[in-house]
Design a protein around this nucleic acid. Structure first.
Lengths: 176, 176
DNA sequence: TGCTCACATGTCGCGGATGACATGTGGAAT
DNA sequence: ATTCCACATGTCATCCGCGACATGTGAGCA
């Protein structure tokens, strides 16, 4: 059911086509929060439209269909946002690998931790660039919703934390 | 496919029954890394056994079947651990809510951020207790695999980071 | 003018995930 | 002796997710 709300959330930010939404999932949403491919996105958009939570805002070139969120859609999104379930539910392959780390022989653990540290470094650099650009746009355009900014900051802090954890785990392994 | 390796990883730590594994998913694995219910776990265990990656170690009371990982199982797990895919794939409903935060009116955002901060505080307290107990056991038992310790530390740091981010986001909203 | 490639939306089959339903067992307390 | 509840494993229908396959379009470039 979460994909539904992921789409509503993106459309609450601004109207978009299925193609554009797919790109959003590829570039940010799917990397940090909720992955989805176009084969799920298009059917779900049709269902959302059938349910009246979104509507066709424009039909453009190459069959492009731009959707916009409706008032019932905003209400449904708000309802979902404000009532998180008691039980946490996560599926993150990367974190699973971290969790199972000690199943490996120490030498492999070390190699994997070093790879994680490098990977995080790349991610952090990328996010720092993104944030710099967002902040410039903000200063120039004067008015921009902080959607990307909050999310980017969250991503940045998450990867910094993961890198620091890996450094700590590595040190812990060495002092054995 | 990840459930397969989550199970192998847990069984690499120590032999366990499907029931015990289900509890692990409820209590730690499913909350931080990879969720799964018993309806998926039992069939997957049967498949793993059929593939020779695990084996029945003991059949106990009430139909309990205790499984242990085999050498091919360890090899398959190691193979998977050491070759992470290029593309990150995440599904985390909580993080999705953070991502979509700005879709809400500011007043709702504030309420949600405050709820997140409280929720994180509870999680952090719980994890601190867990870690204290793990460290005591270590000192007392002298010898214990660091599986739970690394994972708990990761969880703790993750929730501290999330709390700090929420505090930052709240301050950012106020200064608007 | 023609070519190419990103744009743009879709179906289909298979396997994974989930909630509802089903069934029986043994330890512990009353 | 009985009752209760956690223990323990399973099926089934339905939906979700993913990779493969399908189809057509317009902008830009040579």
């Amino acid at each position: 059911m979460s994909l539904r709300y992921a789409l509503l959330g993106l459309l609450a930010y601004e109207p978009a086509s299925g193609y554009a939404l797919t790109k959003s999932f590829e570039h940010h949403v799917g990397r940090y929060a909720w992955q989805a491919g176009h084969t799920r996105i298009y059917p779900e958009l049709n269902k959302l439209a059938a349910d009246g939570l979104i509507e066709v805002a424009e039909e453009g070139a190459r069959g492009r269909i731009t959707y916009a969120i409706t008032e019932p859609g905003r209400a449904a999104l708000r309802e979902w946002m404000m009532t998180p379930p008691a039980a946490r539910k996560v599926r993150d392959e990367d974190v699973l690998r971290l969790f199972l780390m000690s199943a490996l022989p120490p030498e492999d653990s070390r190699r994997l931790l070093k790879a994680i540290i490098e990977d995080c470094a790349g991610e952090i650099d990328e996010l720092r660039d993104t944030i710099a650009m967002l902040d410039e746009d903000c200063a120039e355009a004067g008015e921009r919703l902080p959607f990307g900014r909050l999310a980017a900051e969250y991503g940045l802090r998450t990867y910094e934390t993961r890198r620091d954890w890996a450094l700590w785990a590595l040190a812990r392994l060495e002092s054995h």
